[in-house]
């Protein structure tokens, strides 16, 4: 008995449910928690696809670092209340409708694509392993890798500059 489809369906429903809860939660803190839940589901998908490296990175970077950063900011601003003013009901409806239409259009466009017979390799293959990816990363993709370190540096500087209080403002 092949258990893979069941795992896939379970993870998919989990991811969608968590995403919906994230969007609909009034409290930002709950949103963050539901998003982390979504990320875990997606990491589960990665493992199912035998992409262990990405699964682990996803959990560490996204669910761990980034979402904690979000949570931190929310806590800092004391926004953990259901204080968010609601948008105009019509605007909400239109937004949801527009999103629904986009989904509908894309699904309708892609359902007849030639991909129908294609399969994604599940639970096998070695390309998702850190050994293979690392070799690629440090050979063919070494330049983008190094440039990404520069990106981090500039992001760090930018965040520091934006985040610090304005000195001139203080002086005056």
């Amino acid at each position: 008995m092949n258990v893979t489809p069941y795992i896939f369906w379970f993870l998919s429903v989990w991811a969608l449910f968590s995403a919906l809860m994230m969007v609909t939660s009034r409290n930002p803190v709950y949103s963050v928690l539901w998003l982390i839940s979504t990320f875990f589901a997606i990491s589960g998908h990665y493992i199912l696809l035998n992409a262990q490296f990405l699964a682990v990175v996803n959990i560490i970077v996204y669910a761990g670092a980034i979402m904690v950063l979000f949570l931190f900011v929310i806590m800092l601003m004391n926004l953990n209340k259901e204080t968010e003013p609601q948008k105009n009901r019509w605007l909400k409806l239109v937004g949801a409708l527009a999103g629904g239409c986009l989904l509908l259009v894309l699904v309708a466009a892609l359902k007849d694509a030639e991909l129908k017979s294609q399969q994604a390799m599940v639970g096998a293959g070695s390309i998702g392993l850190i050994k293979v990816l690392g070799k690629e990363l440090f050979t063919r993709y070494v330049v983008p890798f190094e440039i990404s370190s520069l990106l981090f540096l500039s992001a760090m500087v930018g965040a520091a500059v934006i985040g610090k209080k304005e000195i001139t403002h203080q002086n005056s």
Partner: peptide
């Protein structure tokens, strides 16, 4: 900005509809 995003989405829907259908 929200409205602009909304218009963007609507436009994408329209363009994709034309493109595909």
């Amino acid at each position: 900005t929200g409205n602009y995003a909304l218009w963007m989405v609507i436009s994408i829907v329209v363009i994709l509809s034309i493109q595909f259908f």
